[in-house]
């Protein structure tokens, strides 16, 4: 029996996604990534001198990430300011991106990545990572690869790609399991989390699903970056 998703998507089908580069003119690099009703924007500033000074590393530059949800991005207003969830996601985001960023030529410097979620319908950390990776590329930060992120879900016994909030709140059978995964464009996993319950075999399957979905995300990211370059060179003619 085929599993029916509330919005009628196939189990391996992502939500309609959109990406755009250059959304914050002040920033050295910036991007927007939209997946269904989830919208993330990211801005990159740097490389610049690391402050506070005691955090400087003379061997390499460093990446710093900040994830923040706008107060009106969800139904129940979030009080502005830092909270523990945002701080953890900030760190996880840094771990997801750090392996592809090469800052060894920027000793004592820092690259700041600021991610803001404007509208949330699940998968905000994935959208944030996708926007951040594009913003880093747009800023011209040396990168070995792109990072693409997607959340795989298990609803009762079925694996599906890219959960919505409605699906995250699914309560039948074994309930929902949420597995956000970030994969580099050469197929390495730099971020993986899980909330829920799942067997080894199915978890292995979920990684294969994430790999396929991340290829689609990568294409959307790459196309948006290319489009930005094309639009820019057109403006010069």
């Amino acid at each position: 029996m085929a599993f029916k998703r509330p919005d009628g998507r196939k189990i391996t089908e992502m939500r309609p996604a959109e990406a755009k580069v250059g959304v914050v003119p002040n920033a050295d690099g910036s991007a927007m990534f939209k997946s269904g009703k989830t919208i993330a924007i990211a801005a990159v500033y740097g490389p610049k001198k690391m402050h506070p000074q005691h955090q400087q590393n003379p061997r390499t530059g460093q990446l710093r990430c900040e994830y923040n949800m706008i107060s009106f991005s969800v139904d129940d207003r979030i009080r502005p300011g830092r909270n523990r969830r945002a701080m953890e996601i900030s760190e996880v985001t840094k771990w997801a991106l750090e392996p592809v960023v090469d800052l060894k030529d920027y000793p004592n410097q820092v690259v700041d990545v600021h991610i803001n979620i404007i509208q949330a319908d699940a998968g905000t950390r994935c959208a944030g990572i996708n926007a951040a990776a594009m913003a880093l590329a747009h800023a011209g930060i040396p990168m070995k690869n792109m990072v693409s992120s997607i959340s795989i879900g298990k609803l009762d016994k079925t694996l599906v790609v890219d959960l919505t909030k409605e699906e995250e709140d699914f309560e039948e059978g074994e309930g929902p399991t949420d597995i956000p995964v970030s994969i580099t464009s050469d197929g390495k996993i730099t971020h993986m989390q899980l909330d829920g319950m799942i067997e080894v075999k199915q978890l292995q399957e979920s990684i294969d699903m994430a790999k396929e979905a991340c290829k689609e995300v990568y294409k959307i990211q790459k196309d948006a970056l290319k489009k930005f370059i094309e639009d820019k060179s057109e403006g010069l003619n």
């Binding site: 706008i70 107060s71 009106f72």
Partner: peptide, 24 residues
């Protein structure tokens, strides 16, 4: 409507200055 989760929301551009405002 920059966020459908707000009771009302807007993006304002004044030249290159941009703010977003939401009512909850």
């Amino acid at each position: 409507d920059v966020s459908i989760k707000a009771e009302g929301s807007v993006r304002v551009n004044l030249g290159k200055t941009e703010v977003i405002v939401g009512v909850k």
